[in-house]
């Protein structure tokens, strides 16, 4: 992350700021709350790759992936369906129903549109039990990165591109 202030700015303000307290939010008096937070964060990361916990995240990620790709290109569901030659109703289900598992042809067409292997896209559906740690971590980061804005922000585009790169790294010969 890049800081948007300079050393001179910081020095001059520190010299002129009033000599007062500046604490905000939840009081932090000992390490116990932070330890709990860190433990739960680690536990979440550790269990994310297990099939029972991961399937929900995979479907959420597939939904987000399709949604973000549409936003990136400014396409409606009908337009994207026409472009990749799949049923618009099925594409709509992919976006709106986290438990929906698209058919093999839709997976293949989506993969071709994204430029990754069908196996990679298949791993984002609830039907898949295979998802490596790298993909799981990337999927979680991607799932947490987007917001419901009408136009993709630069950060969202970067997150989308990063995630597609991870997908693209999955062996295409198995697609």
């Amino acid at each position: 992350m890049k800081l948007h202030f300079t050393a001179d700015w910081l020095r001059s303000h520190i010299e002129h700021d009033p000599d007062v307290d500046c604490d905000a939010g939840l009081p932090l008096r000992d390490a116990a709350p932070l330890e709990r937070l860190m433990q739960e964060r680690s536990r979440h990361q550790a269990t994310a790759g297990q099939p029972s916990a991961a399937s929900e995240h995979k479907t959420v990620v597939l939904f987000k992936l399709v949604h973000q790709l549409r936003r990136k290109d400014g396409l409606s569901i009908a337009q994207l369906a026409a472009k990749i030659r799949v049923d618009a109703a099925e594409l709509e289900k992919v976006e709106k129903d986290p438990c929906y598992v698209p058919g093999p042809r839709t997976v293949h067409q989506l993969a071709e549109f994204i430029g990754v292997s069908a196996r990679a896209v298949e791993q984002l559906t609830a039907a898949s039990s295979a998802q490596n740690d790298n993909l799981t971590e990337a999927a979680h980061r991607f799932a947490a990165s987007s917001d419901d804005l009408s136009k993709l922000s630069q950060a969202e585009r970067r997150d989308l591109n990063d995630f597609v790169k991870v997908l693209a790294s999955i062996d295409k010969k198995n697609g």
């Binding site: 939840l26 009081p27 000992d30 937070l37 739960e40 964060r41 979440h44 799932a143 947490a144 990165s145």
Partner: peptide, 24 residues
């Protein structure tokens, strides 16, 4: 003296962090 007790809401924050660890 700016030394109030931490309150029970810390537990809620931990749960929120569990559900969305990458938002924090």
């Amino acid at each position: 003296v700016n030394a109030e007790d931490a309150h029970w809401e810390w537990g809620k924050k931990a749960l929120a962090a569990l559900n969305d660890p990458f938002l924090f």
